[in-house]
Amino acid sequence: MKRYVIVWLCLLTIVALEVAVTLSHPPAGWLLAGLLMLAFIEAALGLLYFMHLKYERRSFMWSVILAVVIAIVLMDHFWLDAFRLLHQRISAP
């Protein structure tokens, strides 16, 4: 149980870091990058320890992770269109 309490404390610390980073009001791009990096660290801790992927067979762990990563990579194709609209956009009334 001690191991899980340590992971839980790490997760709480990361949440505190996320809030601190947001309160420092960095540019939106930097804030997004920082928050995403911290969220992925949180997710990795949750997957490996709380969801026990660390203790499953490697083949199982990588099958699960790769399936999600491939799905996420395939979703990235429409960002080009979002940024096209960003550069086209007109000011709000």
């Binding site: 996320e18 947001t22 939106a28 911290l38 969220a39 949180e42 997710a43 949750g46 997957l47 969801m51």
Partner: peptide, 21 residues
Amino acid sequence: GLYWHFVDLVWMFVFPLVYLM
């Protein structure tokens, strides 16, 4: 428990992206 941890894991992305941003 695995399902519950997953719900928690999703919130780890929802909170920073939807709230903090």
